[in-house]
C-alpha cells in the first residue's frame, strides 16, 4: 500500500510542489494549510510522514511538532521540517521539539523523495 504523507504549508505553491513530487514517486499525499488543520486532519486519518513548514499562521510548525509528539499515537511519526536558510533559529526549535529531519527550500525533488523514503521506510 502506498505510504501516506501529509504536507503542511500555508503556501499553496509549496504544498503542490511537495504533493506533485511525492505523488509522482508513488506516495499518497494530503495537504493542510496550517498546524491546526493538520492536527485535526491527522486525527481523522493518520499518515506515515508529515512534512511541515515552520512559518505558518494559526499554528506554526514548531507548535505542530510539539502537539504531535505530545500525542502518544504520533510519538514515532516521522516529521520533516521544510525550512529556508533564514529559519535557522526556528529549525533548532523544531528539532528540539522532536522533528525527525529537515529539508531546505527550495528543495531538490530527488532529495525530497529519498528523505521521505528513508524516514518512512
Amino acid at each position: 500500500m502506498a505510504k501516506r504523507v501529509m504536507t503542511v504549508d500555508d503556501s499553496r505553491t509549496m504544498r503542490e510542489m511537495v504533493s506533485f513530487t511525492l505523488r509522482k514517486a508513488g506516495f499518497e499525499v494530503s495537504e493542510a494549510e496550517d498546524g491546526q488543520k493538520a492536527l485535526s486532519a491527522l486525527q481523522a486519518k493518520p499518515v506515515d510522514v508529515v512534512i511541515t513548514d515552520l512559518n505558518m499562521p494559526v499554528m506554526d510548525g514548531v507548535a505542530l511538532i510539539r502537539a504531535l509528539r505530545a500525542d502518544p499515537k504520533c510519538r514515532s511519526l516521522p516529521i520533516l521540517m521544510l525550512t529556508t536558510e533564514s529559519d535557522s533559529g526556528k529549525k533548532l526549535e523544531g528539532k528540539n521539539a522532536g522533528a525527525t529531519g529537515w529539508l531546505v527550500k527550495p528543495f531538490d525533488p530527488e532529495k525530497l523523495v529519498d528523505v521521505v523514503k528513508r524516514v518512512a521506510g
Binding site: T13, M56, P57, T84, K105, P106, F107
Partner: peptide, 17 residues
C-alpha cells in the same frame, strides 16, 4: 506584521524553486 512577513516569505520560497 506576521502576515506581511509570511506573504513575502512565501513568494520568496516558491520563487527560489
Amino acid at each position: 506584521m506576521h502576515a506581511l512577513f509570511r506573504a513575502i516569505h512565501s513568494i520568496k520560497g516558491g520563487g527560489g524553486a
